[in-house]
């Protein structure tokens, strides 16, 4: 069953059509890949599915619910999380705080808390909730092997750890579907290997993973299903061996043979 699918999704900026008529789907509990040359519209597609951008036409469905044009914070609460190509941590905050924020707003209950008449019970509730958020954040840090660095400012972590922290923060929102935008960018081979095993462990938790990646070794290794975009259009989809043999894909990446 498709956890997420788009119907004729189009996003145009003035005359430039970044994503054009894309029908695209992600199977539940899979690791899927979205690839294509630079400027193919991959990140635009991510943005339009996560509510950071609104499609010009077409629709997005998550768990069979139409989420087209739903604001990002609601989509997050529905269970979609993402990371960014250029890491976007809360740099000034500690590692722990970054993950706690991911957890804090999950519940979606009214953010203006403490309106309860009985200030004491609402204070106690806040305290126990705070504790719960803290414990859960520590668990996620542990999962990513970042617990020791929890009091560091996020910006002081080594590059590879910053990437993993961003994934940890996304996971703390307890998503059903996790989008990773070029998670291996800038990583050395050891870091990439570590990342691959982390992604598999995330999938084993029952989370569906969709990633954009240029590192073909990583993509072909861990993705069960791959979609290829070029100039905003879907040109191919299938399993890694099908994609590797697809002449349209080869042409998109290597150019046409004369």
């Amino acid at each position: 069953m498709s956890l997420l699918y788009t119907k004729q999704l189009t996003r145009a900026y003035g005359g430039v059509i970044a994503v054009s008529d894309v029908d695209f789907s992600v199977e539940k509990n899979s690791i899927s890949g979205l690839i294509g040359p630079n400027g193919a519209g991959k990140t635009t597609l991510f943005n339009n599915v996560t509510g950071m951008d609104i499609p010009t036409s077409g629709s997005v469905h998550f768990n069979d619910k139409d989420i087209t044009g739903v604001p990002a914070f609601k989509i997050s609460r529905l269970g979609i999380a993402r990371t960014f190509q250029n890491i976007r941590l809360f740099k000034e905050m500690s590692v722990l705080e970054n993950v706690m924020i991911g957890r804090h707003f999950k519940s979606g209950r009214s953010m203006i808390s403490g309106r309860t008449v009985n200030a004491l019970t609402s204070y106690m509730k806040m305290k126990s909730e705070e504790k719960d958020v803290y414990d859960k954040a520590r668990e996620w840090l542990d999962f990513f092997g970042l617990d020791e660095a929890r009091n560091e400012a996020a910006k002081n972590l080594p590059y590879g750890n910053q990437r993993e922290l961003e994934i940890a923060r996304a996971m703390a929102t307890e998503p059903e579907l996790l989008f990773l935008d070029e998670p291996a960018a800038g990583m050395n081979p050891q870091e990439t290997d570590h990342l691959m095993s982390t992604i598999r462990r995330i999938r084993d938790l029952g989370v569906t993973v969709l990633l954009i990646e240029h590192d073909m070794k990583l993509v072909m290794n861990i993705c069960e299903h791959i979609t290829v975009l070029n100039y905003g259009k879907k040109i191919a989809e299938g399993n890694p061996s099908e994609i590797q043999k697809n002449p349209l894909v080869i042409e998109a990446y290597l150019g046409k043979e004369d």
Partner: peptide, 16 residues
Amino acid sequence: RATSLDQDVAALMGID
């Protein structure tokens, strides 16, 4: 604080 650091990401954390 999160919103002042990065509005888009704050939204992705479920912050209205």
